[in-house]
Design a protein around this nucleic acid. Structure first.
Length: 803
DNA sequence: GAGTTTGAAACT
DNA sequence: CAGTTTCAAACTC
């Protein structure tokens, strides 16, 4: 199983760790070890590199739940695990949780805030379904889609999923029906001596409930039902809700930094009740105490199957400015005939961050997923090129499917990139997209997330000490998440999300985020958005192909990253300059491509390692850079709130000889003035500097000239073309002379403009009169040649038409 | 295009 | 942290 190493968790910024949930955490929890260590089983959780035996199975579910539908189901890690997931299948009206639904509709990640243990409940899923990644197809399963056999599961909107967590009660409602109250029935305290109980809830008297609604639930009526069917209304202070509303404003004061949700897809379940919830994965939560929820959640499957596949990795490169988070999920549900797969694209826009999650749930083989219809491209995928370190403000999570098909979905109006990887079998299989769903992160405050037609809530309990939790089979009969293939999952920070990047660097390539053990083959990988862009730019994404990791060239394209504080539009408008590195292998910050979190593409570099073929080296280099400077991939030019005036170099320049008036100077290059933090000598790059003003004036003048010339030429060309269109019939008569009609008033004017511009240019460059005349005449010659050429072409065309 | 200059990055 | 070296871009010719 992929787990977040303690050290990685320790790297999480305080803002991530600092959550209200922490405060709520009972202090009685012993320590990390108690949490991590499952009773009687080794705490050794296979890391990504670990290659568990194919026969190795991981049982995450307790069988008890399946057999007793009427009884509240509490799935928890073994006694050592403080986190308990309680799913009640009781038909009680108050408690409307259906096991199948809960598992299928919502991927829940719970984190024991007390111990820091993170448990990701992927929901019900087929235990027997192998949770594997096929090396043959070179794909990484990042997230299993729990395709609950329940068609109802997908349909059972409004069915709440209850997750009980130690110290915190988490209510997760399925894509719910509005107006339906959320009722939580807690299992008998004595009924299930789950880990939750053993976890030592120090605050049993004041349990906290966090409710996440998947739908635009207008009313929220959390009710705690005791075993005796008594309903107790939660106290306000006890209840924390996260509501994901449909089509809510994307703007959010507190952007979500990072959200990774996984979908649970249980397949082949004979009985919905028989599917126990599975807890797997890890969660990284970030919550800003002041701001609305800022959460970073990374969940990984408990499955130990996460393993590296040589040459089959997803390179994720650091981001400079992680203001945007894109989650792309790829679902490859292996739906059976009785099941209906539902792909739920989740689009969550919070502040500048956008979270896109596609959730696949099992369902009847009804229809092709809506997501497929929205999919712009379905390509066979062999590899994903995710990489780059850089300053992009996008963070992308790309779920990988075991199958080599990729579907790219562009959501209009949103910046997130949506990529769906579909297995070959899945492609044939029919999935029904219930609509966009959103995942939200549970934090101290209710959070409204812009969602699509379908919403999915992923409650995330902020965990301060992020701990590794090895999912344990709750029951002997339980089944299993088997890892038959070596899976490699990578989470690579390309650039620093300021808050979380360091953590990602520790993640290995191919790291899967919250893959749910079970039937589905869906996972999420964190990748910088620019890589997604690259994927999108490459229509073929070359992920196709069953063998071998595709050459990076097919995947790599010009990244569109904000560079040095430039706006995205600016960065987008201008192509990145190719690098010319010769000695750095493009794996050091000397290389602009690498520094910007991009793969080298169409560069002139030698011995380049900044590509997918050298992912390992690249990731190592990224980590090295981050170790050296955690902000190495952040934009150097900060953007002030007040506009460009506040833009300044984060470190300041150290120029000595250039006077900070040449592009050697990073400040000048970024078109900003040096600031007090600069250590430059003889700086002339300040507001009142006459040299700077002169330079700027000249630069502006030059730019204006270029623009004017360009405009004039464009105008001339358009006019010529227009004349061609109009004069062609006239010329059809043929003849040896060119059509005189080309010399029209418009052409003359355009020609004169070009000549005037040339004269101005000569004047500004202090050319002699003779030289100026020469330049003007030369320009006139060019204009004349173009006119003649156009006329001749028109004549030829007309002649051909006449024939 | 070759050579030089420059300053950030990397190294010690 | 400071000094030095390496490196690739910027610049000059």
């Amino acid at each position: 199983m992929d787990v977040v190493s303690p050290e990685l968790n320790s790297l999480l910024p305080d803002e991530i760790m600092d959550t209200e949930a922490i405060e709520d955490v009972p202090q009685s929890q012993p320590d990390e070890t108690a949490v991590q260590s499952e009773p009687s089983d080794d705490t050794s959780v296979p890391m990504e590199t670990d290659t568990p035996l194919a026969s190795e199975n991981l049982s995450l579910c307790s069988d008890a739940t399946s057999t007793e539908p009427t009884q509240a189901l509490t799935t928890s890690a073994t006694t050592g695990n403080p986190i308990a997931v309680s799913i009640s299948s009781t038909p009680s009206p108050l408690l409307t949780l259906k096991p199948a639904l809960a598992t299928s509709t919502a991927a829940t990640i719970t984190t024991d805030s007390v111990t820091g243990t993170i448990v990701s409940t992927s929901g019900l899923q087929k235990l027997t379904a192998p949770f594997t990644i096929s090396p043959a197809n070179h794909q990484i399963i990042l997230n299993k889609v729990a395709s609950s056999q329940a068609t109802e599961a997908a349909k059972s909107a409004g069915t709440p999923q209850v997750i009980k967590q130690e110290g915190q009660k988490l209510l997760v409602t399925a894509i719910g029906k509005s107006g339906q109250p959320i009722v939580l029935q807690l299992p008998h305290t004595g009924s299930k001596p789950g880990a939750s109980q053993t976890s030592g809830d120090t605050k049993p008297q004041t349990p906290q409930f966090k409710v996440v609604t998947l739908g635009a639930r207008s009313e929220l009526k959390p009710v705690v039902g005791s075993a005796g069917n008594q309903v107790t209304t939660l106290q306000p202070q006890q209840l924390k809700t996260v509501q994901i509303a449909k089509k809510t404003p994307t703007s959010s004061a507190a952007p979500i930094k990072f959200i990774i949700t996984k979908t649970v897809n249980s397949k082949g379940l004979s009985s919905p009740t028989s599917v126990p919830p599975v807890i797997a994965g890890r969660v990284l939560t970030q919550t800003s105490p002041v701001m609305p929820p800022r959460t970073i959640t990374l969940s990984e499957p408990h499955n130990t199957s996460i393993q590296s596949i040589a040459g089959k990795k997803i390179a994720i490169s650091p981001l400079k400015t992680p203001s945007k988070v894109t989650v792309v999920s790829v679902a490859s549900p292996t739906s059976n005939a009785s099941q209906k797969s539902v792909a739920l694209p989740v689009n969550v826009a919070l502040g500048q961050q956008i979270l896109t999650v596609q959730q696949s749930t099992s369902g009847s083989p009804v229809k092709l997923a809506t997501s497929q219809t929205t999919t712009q491209n379905i390509k066979p995928v062999q590899s994903l090129a995710v990489g780059g370190v850089g300053g992009s403000q996008f963070k992308t999570i790309i779920p990988l499917a075991t199958q080599p098909n990729v579907q790219q979905i562009q959501v209009p109006g949103s910046k997130f990139h949506y990529v769906r990887l579909v297995t070959a079998t899945t492609a044939s299989s029919i999935g029904q997209a219930s609509g966009p769903s959103t995942s939200s992160i549970q934090t101290a405050k209710p959070m409204v997330v812009n969602t699509g037609a379908v919403r999915m809530s992923v409650p995330i309990v902020p965990a301060q000490p992020m701990k590794q939790v090895a999912p344990k089979p709750l029951t002997s009969a339980a089944q299993i998440v088997t890892t038959t293939q070596t899976q490699q999952r990578l989470i690579m920070p390309a650039t620093p999300l300021p808050q979380i990047q360091p953590n990602f660097t520790n993640l290995r390539p191919g790291t899967v985020l919250a893959p749910a053990p079970g039937g589905g083959n869906v996972g999420y990988a964190v990748v910088p958005a620019q890589y997604v862009t690259q994927l999108q730019q490459s229509p073929f994404v070359t992920l196709a192909g069953s063998s071998g990791f595709p050459a990076s060239t097919g995947v790599q394209t010009q990244a569109r990253l904000p560079l040095n504080g430039l706006s995205t539009a600016e960065a987008t408008s201008r192509p990145r300059k190719p690098c010319n590195c010769t000695k750095s292998q493009c794996l050091k910050l000397y290389c602009d491509c690498f520094a910007n979190g991009e793969f080298c593409n169409n560069c002139n570099c030698n011995n380049c390692f900044n590509n997918l073929e050298h992912e390992t080296e690249r990731l190592k280099a990224i980590k090295t850079c981050l170790d050296r400077n955690p902000e190495a991939f952040k934009p150097k030019i900060g953007k002030g709130k007040e506009g460009e005036s506040d833009r300044r170099h984060s470190k300041g320049c150290n120029c000595k000889r250039s006077g900070c008036l040449k592009n050697y100077c990073e400040c000048y290059e970024a078109k900003i003035m040096c600031s007090s933090i600069c250590k430059c000598i003889g700086c002339k790059n300040f507001e009142e500097s006459p040299e700077r003003k002169t330079l700027m004036h000249l630069a502006d003048a030059a730019e204006v000239r270029v623009q004017q010339q360009t405009a004039a030429k464009t105008k001339l060309s358009s006019q010529i073309s227009d004349l061609l269109m109009r004069t062609t019939p006239v010329n059809s008569s043929g003849g040896g002379r060119l059509p005189y009609t080309f010399v029209t008033k418009e052409v003359l004017e355009a020609t004169c403009e070009c000549l005037v511009e040339q004269a101005k240019k000569a004047e500004q460059t202090f050319q002699s009169q003779a030289e100026a005349e020469r330049m003007i005449l030369e320009e006139f010659g060019h204009c004349l040649m173009r006119i003649i050429s156009s006329a001749g072409k028109a004549k030829a065309d007309s002649a051909s038409i006449s024939c």
